[in-house]
């Protein structure tokens, strides 16, 4: 076995560049495709049997900068406040001084941002917890299967309680430390939001992780709404690239020099 997986091959380039290209082109309305990952090697191992989600996954396909509508085919059900916040964020971007958010500040962006960008993540099932590790922001999310063990404090990533329904892991996350951006355009979720993820493996021409997100956030939406994402099984992406954003964000001058604006509260 060579370390060719470590070479800067089209695989890595695709992953690094893909999301970039996708975001750029998507913004202009083009049907952007990220530079594709090369096919999973034929001899790559499959996921573990049963409902185990363990292994390495990555968002496939193009990065969608803004969730276009719900799974019901209807528009995202913003209320006036939710729409106002999104509009302000879009306007800031267009003005040449986008708002800084958790992402820009090298803070955990929370789900689903952690999963959606084209960076790999790994899932471990350990005792009565499920641990996610993300390449992006070297993120970590603990899903507690024993509700008694959930910590009391709020977290950037929220507090996640999970239970199995057959082959589906149902994760309920609340207790966000601050409001989160659901996508790169800034579809909002308040700190009081309740986010449910229904996660399971499917085989759809290849092994996938299907996640149905449901957001219950009366502060910004008129009703709960759902959207679905598919992630690819990619054991070959096991060695993550280092995401040492603190080297930049720890510089107190960073935001001021970045060309970003601070979002009004």
């Amino acid at each position: 076995m060579t370390a060719m997986d470590r070479t800067l091959n089209s695989n890595m380039i695709a992953r690094i560049c893909g999301a970039v290209a996708a975001a750029i082109l998507a913004a202009s309305g083009a049907a952007a495709q990220p530079r594709p990952l090369p096919p999973l090697p034929a001899d790559a191992p499959p996921p573990p049997p049963g409902h185990s989600l363990e292994g390495i996954w990555i968002a496939g396909g193009r990065l969608v900068p803004q969730i276009p509508k719900g799974d019901d085919g209807l528009s995202v059900p913003f209320n006036a406040e939710g729409q106002r916040i999104l509009d302000a964020r879009l306007a800031a971007m267009k003005s040449g001084a986008p708002f800084a958010n958790a992402s820009a500040a090298c803070r955990p962006p929370g789900p689903p941002w952690q999963m959606d960008l084209n960076f790999p993540f790994e899932i471990h099932e350990v005792a009565d917890r499920i641990e996610f590790i993300f390449e992006e922001y070297h993120g970590a999310q603990t899903i507690f299967l024993d509700p008694a063990k959930v910590p009391p404090e709020s977290r950037y990533s929220g507090r996640s309680i999970g239970h199995w329904e057959g082959d589906t892991l149902v994760v309920d996350t609340s207790g966000f430390r601050q409001s989160i951006w659901l996508d790169v355009n800034g579809t909002p979720a308040s700190a009081d939001a309740k986010l449910t993820q229904r996660i399971r493996k499917i085989n759809d021409g290849g092994w996938r992780l299907q996640v149905v997100y449901t957001l219950d956030d009366p502060k910004y939406y008129t009703r709960p709404w759902s959207w679905t994402r598919i992630y690819l099984w990619r054991p070959d992406q096991q060695t993550f690239l280092e995401y040492n954003c603190e080297e930049q964000a720890g510089d107190p001058n960073y935001i001021a020099q970045s060309g970003l604006a601070l979002e009004p509260k």
């Binding site: 380039i13 690094i16 560049c17 999301a19 970039v20 290209a21 975001a23 750029i24 082109l25 998507a26 913004a27 202009s28 952007a32 530079r35 900068p65 803004q66 964020r89 879009l90 971007m93 267009k94 986008p98 708002f99 800084a100 958010n101 958790a102 992402s103 820009a104 090298c106 941002w113 951006w181 996508d183 790169v184 355009n185 800034g186 954003c245 603190e246 080297e247 930049q248 964000a249 510089d251 960073y254 970045s258 060309g259 970003l260 979002e263």
Partner: peptide
């Protein structure tokens, strides 16, 4: 312009339309 998600993360601002 892709809509930057709140701005250039430390040290990295992807950019260039379609350029890898």
């Amino acid at each position: 312009g892709g809509p930057p998600p709140g701005g250039p993360p430390p040290g990295g601002r992807p950019g260039g339309a379609g350029r890898p």
